[in-house]
């Protein structure tokens, strides 16, 4: 260990090998899959809403990757079937997430389709769930003395309603809700789709799916 060049070359070679194994080869395998049949590209409004989702950092509390029933009861909680790589081809940046301070959202549009519900929940989560620790997003709404034509008024229970006038959803709030309503990957996955099957129970012949 007296020479600089061999040290650098071997160090970089090891990193290149790791990159091959963790990025290049899995990438080739994932790219060889076609998008899930049933997966639609995002609409313009959904993409704008997705930008809000990314920019507000929803990722840091909500995953978008339900686990398989072999591993966890995600499906039974209504979060949807285990997701597969081809469910995400239109996602950039990806929002798989690593934390569940709140529930998984990959299929939130399927289980909570109501725009009114989402608007109320975004303005004040505790108006719906007293146990929630989700931040309120009042800056996505405007308080007005009275609603004007075209305004989407947010329904709030007594105690949370505006003292004077009404809360009206901004375009950002409407876009974000459109994105959330569009999160629905409940269509069936292809049998050979790529995902981590490491928790699957082996079948009678000892093979995993």
């Amino acid at each position: 260990m007296n020479r600089l060049l061999p040290l650098s070359i071997v160090a970089l070679g090891i990193l290149a090998f790791a990159t091959l194994m963790l990025v290049v080869v899995p990438g080739m395998q994932i790219r060889s899959q076609s998008p899930s049949p049933g997966l639609l590209p995002y609409t313009q409004a959904e993409l704008r809403g997705r930008e809000q989702y990314v920019s507000l950092g929803c990722l840091y509390c909500h995953s978008q990757q339900p686990r398989a029933s072999d591993q966890a009861p995600d499906d039974q909680r209504g979060w949807g079937r285990a997701s597969v790589a081809s469910d995400y081809v239109y996602d950039q940046p990806h929002q798989l997430g690593t934390m569940r301070t709140g529930p998984d959202l990959l299929n939130v549009g399927a289980r909570l389709p109501s725009q009114a519900w989402h608007l109320t929940h975004l303005l004040q989560p505790r108006a719906i769930f007293d146990w929630s620790i989700m931040p309120a997003y009042p800056f996505l709404f405007e308080q007005k003395p009275a609603a004007e034509p075209g305004d989407v008024v947010v329904a709030l229970p007594p105690g949370y309603a505006a003292q004077n006038g009404v809360f009206v959803a901004s375009q950002q709030a409407l876009d974000l809700v459109t994105y959330l309503q569009g999160l629905d990957r409940t269509y069936p996955a292809l049998p050979d789709a790529v995902r981590d099957d490491g928790y699957a129970e082996p079948d009678d012949e000892g093979r995993k799916p």
């Binding site: 071997v10 160090a11 090891i14 990193l15 090998f17 790791a18 194994m21 963790l22 080869v25 899995p26 395998q29 994932i30 990757q65 686990r67 398989a68 591993q71 966890a72 285990a82 997701s83 597969v84 790589a85 469910d87 995400y88 798989l96 690593t98 790529v194 995902r195 981590d196 099957d197 490491g198 928790y199 995993k208």
Partner: peptide, 25 residues
């Protein structure tokens, strides 16, 4: 150098990644 460089995908265990790459990590 050899082992630490390949552990990253353990953050995606049980997720929509190939089984082998999760196991590798």
């Amino acid at each position: 150098a050899l082992f630490y460089s390949q552990v990253g995908i353990h953050h995606l265990i049980g997720g929509p990644v190939p089984t082998w790459v999760a196991t590798l990590s």
